[in-house]
Design a protein around this nucleic acid. Sequence first.
DNA 1: ACCTGAACACCGTTCAAGT
DNA 2: ACCTGAACACCGTTCAAGT
Lengths: 209, 209
Amino acid sequence: MSRNYAGLSRERIIVEALHIIAGRGLGGLSMRRLGDALDVEAMAIYHHFPRGKEQLFNAIAAYVTTARVVSGLTEGQGPPEAEEEEGSEEAPAEAAEADDRPWDERLTAWAEAYRTRLLAYSGALSLLMHRAPHTLGEEDTRALLRTAFSEAGLAEDDVPRAVDALNGYCLGSVAHQVRHEGREDAPDEAEALARFRFGLRALLRGLSS
Amino acid sequence: MSRNYAGLSRERIIVEALHIIAGRGLGGLSMRRLGDALDVEAMAIYHHFPRGKEQLFNAIAAYVTTARVVSGLTEGQGPPEAEEEEGSEEAPAEAAEADDRPWDERLTAWAEAYRTRLLAYSGALSLLMHRAPHTLGEEDTRALLRTAFSEAGLAEDDVPRAVDALNGYCLGSVAHQVRHEGREDAPDEAEALARFRFGLRALLRGLSS
DNA sequence: ACCTGAACACCGTTCAAGT
DNA sequence: ACCTGAACACCGTTCAAGT
């Protein structure tokens, strides 16, 4: 086989990797398998992720925490992945049109969207456990949450605590759900969503009182 | 080298595995390295975990969710690991002496102990993401939490939702903290604990109102 | 710049064998 | 029952080479 202009890109690699993770689990993702899926020798991936699998994992974690979920899978916007020195090719920022809904509706909407995203990439959930990507998307999110909690009347010192509590609740709820998936006593998605909302309402009520 | 009565046991293997995970991360745990640490050929481990690394991971997850933290590390009680057919050699059940403190104190005490345990084994946190061990310890815990929430005056249908919310919050808070560890803007352990308590109080207040 | 192909050290697991 | 040792298929990564 001669030359192969596979038209590889960070995003294509990440999306394909998420496909494999969805199908065979995180342990089923190998550089060679990923290469096969991309019609490329495994080593070609190293040209786009010079620091190898670790860097790919970081990029996936960044992608999962900032990509938009459109259909059943992916169709996200680029891999932000600022990661140390790199010049952070960032996503188009989504217009961020002023949202005039009350603070609790904004927080609820954000939380449910975040939950949906985490659930869509649940196979990669454990990657998020040890990687907190430094992306603009994350900063935007924190700003959004901080503003909402300020509007809710929280003391200045309490705002970052409330932001962390909400983040923790969302991540943990999805983890708890995925963790029990496939068990006979596991609730179905409808009940899981009901439970998520129940706890979310309680948390927001408790935080603002 | 002739015979080698290494005195291997499930518990010794698990504890040693957790040592390696603490030192080199989950990715640094290999059967061969684990064998070396136990002064044994890697293949000896398969006699105690016939289904290999997957079974070992399950056992570690079960251990982490039910072992007691004594000193800096481990010294937990045996690997419960009911796991499908197996006859569930369970831990001695810890006497479970009647606790007459009010419900919110009991829940707070449980949550903080759980957090401490998760933090002590934070390297194995991602193992918990896809494995929910079926142990007596877990059942005991759910019973304890259910009772407390019932005492708090929750409607019967709301009790399991509250239990899940609390579980999710604890797991997610630790995950969120570990995720940001080593980042320059990460809070220290004192502030992390303060944030955990802040969110926990809010959640309990919201759940019982 | 982008991709290949051979090579190296390491990995999980099986299987036959030892005591 | 408990452990060894060789073997096999697979893995991540490096490096020199091709275009």
